[in-house]
Design a protein around this nucleic acid. Sequence first.
DNA 1: CCGCATCCAAGCGGATACTG
DNA 2: CAGTATCCGCTTGGATGCGG
Lengths: 138, 138
Amino acid sequence: MVTNPADPVLRGSPYRADCPTRHILDRIGDRWTVLIVGALWDGTARFSELRRRVEGVSQKMLTQTLRALERDGLVRRTVHPEVPVRVEYALTEAGRTLHEPLRALQQWAIAHVGEVAASQEAYDRANRPAPAPTERGA
Amino acid sequence: MVTNPADPVLRGSPYRADCPTRHILDRIGDRWTVLIVGALWDGTARFSELRRRVEGVSQKMLTQTLRALERDGLVRRTVHPEVPVRVEYALTEAGRTLHEPLRALQQWAIAHVGEVAASQEAYDRANRPAPAPTERGA
DNA sequence: CCGCATCCAAGCGGATACTG
DNA sequence: CAGTATCCGCTTGGATGCGG
């Protein structure tokens, strides 16, 4: 390993293949992480509640993502030992700090969705007219 | 621009399964997108140059990601018809606006890498002592 | 109600070989 | 140098059924 902590450029640089920040970016990059963290911003939420809020997420992915977030110390999981078990999820302090850049990303997506769509359309028109999922004249 | 900041629906927009912002978040969430956009911040870069900067990226993934970014209108691709073909990539205006939230994410990753690692360690210790890839006592 | 385990399909992503 | 095309493993991720 050539990791040189003294090098200001390489220190903590995700451009290094062996840097742990790569893993973090991977986790953040997860489709559901952004949405789940955002959904938890309001406060505590139960499992079913989250499942309802984040449309389209499967139970498996929700559990998996929540577990990963918990392991990373971004989400706190609280089990209420009642008769029908109640589990509540909430952002930790670290999770709240993550929410900010994630929200910025969401905002960017919302702000540029039209622009991007237009660019895609133009690109597809200029290159291959039929990359559509529906096969026409195959 | 069809973006209407006053629309209350937009707040939870990506939480709708059918919303195109989902696609954008997917693209942004791509492992390489963050790194490539960041690598292009300095200015124009050639293909090989990018491959060198973003350590660990395969030629396939680099091409693929660059193509997608170009299609989304975030990266401009310029081909110089010289004898050894030279291709240069650069961020568009939209790409530059994306760079900001992406950099914030990178910064977050760098700032919290230690905290996250510690949390993971504690979590693993508290739960399963041997989640290692090598199966022992399965 | 919460979530784990399993099965299984699909797509991601890497290695390689070849073209212009 | 830049890029395409192919093969292929492996992970992702959904559906289902069971257990606390």
